[in-house]
Design a protein around this nucleic acid. Structure first.
Lengths: 189, 189
DNA sequence: ATAAGCCTACCTACATACAGGTAGGTAGTA
DNA sequence: TACTACCTACCTGTATGTAGGTAGGCTTAT
């Protein structure tokens, strides 16, 4: 698969980045238009409304996550969690982004119902993948923890976004510490 | 202390609520003006710029937290943590708010440096209070955990905002579960 | 082979709305 | 008299979105 993106794909890609950095509502078409050297109105040619673009961003991120699942399908459970953590380190590094789910969760009360639904569904996909990886690691003996898988899943689902937020206000040290604690949580608790 | 607020105080109070629900950037003067039955321009009489109002909201929340610290000064450590959790339950209930620190952390890249600084300082106040409560509980034998106080503090600092976000996308059940796990974390880990 | 027609990927120009903010005024109170 | 707490009216900037146009490539019929 070639990495050359057409305009439509580049709009989503750039839009996603901006939304993750400054939020869905603060994001605007101008920034993308400048970067792609096209006019504001041309974006509407591909995405008639901002909601359409928002939906496309969520959908693209979900698809990327599905591919991630596929790629990691046969990896050992710890590698799966490591890869997830690695993705979050990338978000934090690349201009202090949030993950897409957190981005839209932070704006949850100002997005349309359609978008809320898409985020809810996407969240459940991530959660069930996480639960699967945790179950697998527990059964293989790679992980050791005494709380339920559902609780551990939820612990991860809350801590990953929380680490991004806390990293913004308290700095990288505390972001790293949160992820480090998270990794340890499946090894002895 | 009377609960009757003057207009200036009510503007901050309402502003805070709206910011917590929809974010700093999405929040606008009109909503407050309507609720207080005054004109948009009158808000500028009290807070010349939006940044001033944002700063006032952060400052008010910090002051409220300082009062909270005072009130809980002689309470047993577990009561302190319970009270904090209770505050977050209130946020989640009252129209699905985030805490003020998360609110501005979510918008961290679109607020002024002054506001960023204020949030950073406020974060450190919360963190050091939390660390104090954890230390106290550990020494009194009320808490049992093996990780460092700094790590446990950070765990709380990340999980509380994370729970609010996850609660928005996955629902109250998972918000409650996150807080429940959090409470358990100081009792056996 | 080529002309006609159509589609894609943009453009210019504009409509609309709404936000933050300012200038200057006024009524009531200290 | 001066200050407080508003108001009306307006300016400016900016965001989403629309209408209509155009250049160039592709398709199809003759």
């Amino acid at each position: 698969m070639s990495t050359v993106l057409n305009t439509k794909e580049r709009i989503v890609e750039l839009g996603r980045g901006h939304m993750q950095r400054i939020g869905y509502h603060s994001f605007n078409y101008k920034q993308i238009a400048l970067e792609l050297n096209i006019k504001n109105a041309s974006i509407h040619h591909y995405y008639p409304s901002k909601e359409d673009l928002g939906m496309a961003v969520i959908e693209k991120d979900r698809q990327d996550f599905m591919q991630f699942i596929q790629r990691m399908k046969k990896a050992p459970p710890m590698d799966k969690l490591d890869a997830l953590i690695c993705a979050y380190e990338e978000y934090f590094k690349n201009g202090i982004k949030l993950c897409v789910i957190s981005t839209f969760s932070a704006s949850f009360n100002e997005i349309t119902e359609r978008m809320q639904l898409a985020i809810q569904q996407y969240s459940e996909i991530v959660a069930s993948w996480l639960a699967g990886a945790l179950k697998e690691g527990l059964e293989s003996g790679d992980f050791h923890f005494t709380i339920s898988i559902e609780e551990m899943t939820n612990h991860w689902m809350a801590t990953l976004p929380g680490a991004l937020l806390v990293g913004r206000s308290r700095g990288k040290k505390y972001f790293d510490m949160a992820l480090h604690s998270l990794k340890k949580s499946v090894q002895s608790s």
